[in-house]
Amino acid sequence: MTAAPLLEARNVTKQFVIGNRFTAQGLRTVHAVDAVSLKIMPGETVGLVGESGCGKSTLGRCMTRLYDITGGELYFEGVDITTKTLRQMRPLRQRMQMVFQDPYASLNPRRRIRDLIAEPLRVHLRLSETEVRDRVRQLLDVVGLSPDHMDRFPHEFSGGQRQRIGIARAIALEPSLIVADEPVSALDVSVQAQIVNLLADLQERLSLTYVFIAHDLSVVRQVSTRIAVMYLGSIVELGSANDIFAKPSHPYTQALISAVPQPDLKKAGERKRIVLTGDVPSPINPPQGCRFHPRCPFATDKCREERPVLTEMAGTRSVACHYPLTA
């Protein structure tokens, strides 16, 4: 990959200050995303995985600048967007869109589908009403909804159809990047597959680049070119989707993948499960040294004291561990 990245995060950090200075605990800082560096190349799908609270959504929202970032830098299509204001972001916002888990929450229940999909077109483009109409019709077709759906309201649709509407809105302005935050997590398996296929078709047709956030590892493996595994705000492993699943290198990745229940009984016997003890520590007081060390079966004194940095290994793999499992 020698092309320029579509989006580049350099040491992106996001902290939230919570609490109240008048209570016993006072103000506390949540280290939601901690010095993440990641290049998203044109045309690829980067999957972000990790357990809830590890900072996936926060990182996604930082990338699209829905959040101001606390530290680090962000470049989109070569432009430094680190400190751009809302107003300055507006023309760029058309180029980067988000799709959320529950499109229903973001769809005004009193507006018809035609208006919901037309909204981004009307806000950002100067189109005549006929042009808007044609474009809406075309968008519905692209996401697999029929033109008869135009005059219906969001509640008349199933979960899968609503996600199609959410996707139609996201692609309306022909973005180059879509950050999809758990887009299929609320859907039943059979419908999930429809949406995964739709996203793949759209990627090909519209040369889209995706950041795909999900906690379902088999879905992420299916859609992703590369996968970034996050733990307590940081990327602990980065590599091609196939490699990471076949040979995880970070002890956390290994445990995470081994915990996914295998529905294929023929293969279930071969798998060895690594059961982690304890829960994910709080991002308010993350552990010193390697953040994974309290749960890591391989931790040594070095791990307790020195924080491993994400280091490039053979091929395209990077790992943040003092003792990676595969060299």
Partner: peptide, 23 residues
Amino acid sequence: ALLDSIPPLEGEKPRRLKSIPGS
């Protein structure tokens, strides 16, 4: 169809998932 629509955890990734049409 339900079993077929689950993305595999290992081996070759299918180009498309088999899905059940409709809901």
